[in-house]
């Protein structure tokens, strides 16, 4: 194995560790947005698709790359939009003060 691969294994290990620590702390409340978000983030494979589509590797490779760009782009655009849309729905309850006034209003 060459040094580049070794370095990549280090990156993989550390990213995995940080990811595990971070993701374990996300409450079940947000597990659907989490899945949508990681989906959008893994749309980063778009950068590999871009190189394949733009490089001059012959028609077949260019076509494969173009389809890959479309797929990854759909995930990036759709993924971030839907995650944001979902997270915008999660709202805190109105402060106790307004709740109390509603309650007294209902009783009067």
């Amino acid at each position: 194995m060459n040094t580049v691969t070794i370095m990549q294994l280090f990156v993989f290990l550390l990213a995995g560790f940080v990811g595990f620590q971070t993701i374990s702390r996300i409450p079940p409340l947000l597990h659907t947005p989490l899945m949508a978000a990681t989906n959008a983030i893994s749309g980063i494979s778009l950068v590999a698709s871009l190189v394949l589509a733009g490089a001059n590797y012959g028609l077949l490779a260019t076509l494969l790359g173009t389809v890959a760009v479309a797929c990854a782009m759909a995930n990036v655009v759709g993924g971030f939009l839907i995650t944001d849309r979902m997270l915008a729905m999660f709202k805190r309850a109105p402060s106790p003060k307004t709740g109390a006034s509603e309650r007294s209003a209902a009783k009067s």
Binding site: C71, A74, N75, V77, G79, L81, I82
Partner: peptide
């Protein structure tokens, strides 16, 4: 991709 992705998001 963007044309497919937008409805998938919104």
């Amino acid at each position: 991709g963007a044309v497919v992705g937008y409805p998938l998001g919104m």
